[in-house]
Simulated scan of single mutants.
Amino acid sequence: MKGMITPMTTVTNSRTFTIGLVMAWYSSNIGVLLLNKYLLSNYGFQYPIFLTMCHMTACSLLSYVAIAWMRVVPMQSVKYGAQLGNIVILSIVFCGSVVSGNVSLRYLPVSFNQAIGATTPFFTAVFAYFMTVKMESWIVYLTLVPVVTGVVIASGGEPSFNMFGFIMCISATAARAFKSVLQGILLSSEGEKLNSMNLLLYMAPIAVLLLLPVTLYMEQNVIGITLALAREDKKIIWYLLFNSVLAYVVNLTNFLVTKHTSALTLQVLGNAKGAVAVVVSIMIFKNPVSVTGMLGYLLTVIGVVLYSEAKKRNK
């Protein structure tokens, strides 16, 4: 009959919606990464802490709009005391990871940044062992060998290698892994569990409060400098606004893709996203790459894929 919705139509619409979400997640992830690189390196806006504060401000405002007004997810309340203290700790680690990642983009090409970022499973396994005394099977630990070896090879073959940028990028990667393990420990009880959107709602304003004095101390007169830049080139304001909104869209689409697929699918898609980001960044910024560097990155990605498969079979 005309206008009748069949099960096949529903499945097709659902699949199209999921594909659209994945594309939005890819676009926002790669977009914010490339725009961060452009602003901090090519454009010459050398204020990564202020840029991170802009991201967190947008996440604070847009999280409230999405949850309180648009009701994307039900709002979850937070208990004062231990739970709020745990969220503050997570916010500090989160700030450290984002700031370190943004600082690294001033000194490293996106391709090398992504190669280092792919070692997150290694740091996650290390922190999980020392913080929870949780042992994985030997095959899981074995898959981490190519992950680390690949980055060592990529570092040796990276024409634009910078030691400070490398340390910042490693710090950002380790902090992301530390946050995920810490989050599992601190918010593991049923009474404290928060979905990622509600966690961001509470973490982002705390992050802004933490970053504000650091910004004022370490990047003095950054607001005055930004306004002076805006008088010369109004595009800087639009760059910062668009970049900040994209930072929130990354978190929103990350949550929605996980909700409509699975955490494992997200991990697989994330591995592919890193490779896409590398190719796109090389095409846009035309940074020099070596065969050794690309082989190292490829080895790391293979190691991450093997790690994901070993973890899945180990469950």
Rank of each mutant, 00 (worst) to 15 (best):
A154P: 02
E190N: 12
A154M: 01
M203F: 07
L194Y: 02
G165L: 09
F161H: 10
E158Y: 00
K193F: 08
M168Y: 01
L201E: 01
G157N: 00
S189Q: 13
F161S: 02
S189M: 06
T173A: 05
S171N: 08
S196T: 09
K179R: 15
S171H: 09
S196Y: 03
A175Y: 04
I185P: 08
A154W: 01
Q183R: 14
E192A: 15
S188L: 04
F164W: 13
G156L: 04
F166R: 07
V181D: 03
V151T: 05
L182T: 13
A154T: 00
G156C: 06
I170N: 06
S180V: 12
N195F: 00
L186P: 00
E190M: 06
S188E: 12
F164R: 12
L186R: 12
G157M: 00
S160W: 07
L182M: 15
M197D: 01
S188G: 07
V152T: 08
N198P: 02
R176Q: 14
S160N: 13
I153H: 00
T173L: 11
L187T: 08
I185A: 05
G184Y: 11
L200C: 11
N195H: 08
N162F: 09
V151N: 00
S189C: 08
G191R: 10
L199E: 06
E192S: 15
L186T: 09
V181S: 08
K179Q: 13
G156H: 03
K179E: 15
F178S: 12
I185C: 13
F161M: 03
S189N: 14
A177I: 12
V181P: 04
V181Q: 08
F164T: 14
S189I: 05
L182R: 07
L199D: 01
E192R: 14
G184V: 04
K179S: 09
L186N: 07
F164D: 10
S196M: 09
L194T: 10
S188F: 07
N195D: 14
Y202E: 00
G150F: 03
P159E: 09
I170R: 06
S160Q: 14
G191Q: 13
V151R: 04
E192P: 00
R176K: 13
A177M: 08
I185Q: 14
I170S: 04
V181N: 11
I170H: 02
L200E: 04
G157A: 05
A172I: 06
F161A: 05
G184H: 11
M197K: 03
C169M: 15
G184W: 07
F178T: 02
S160E: 13
K193P: 00
T173S: 05
M203W: 05
M197Y: 04
N198D: 03
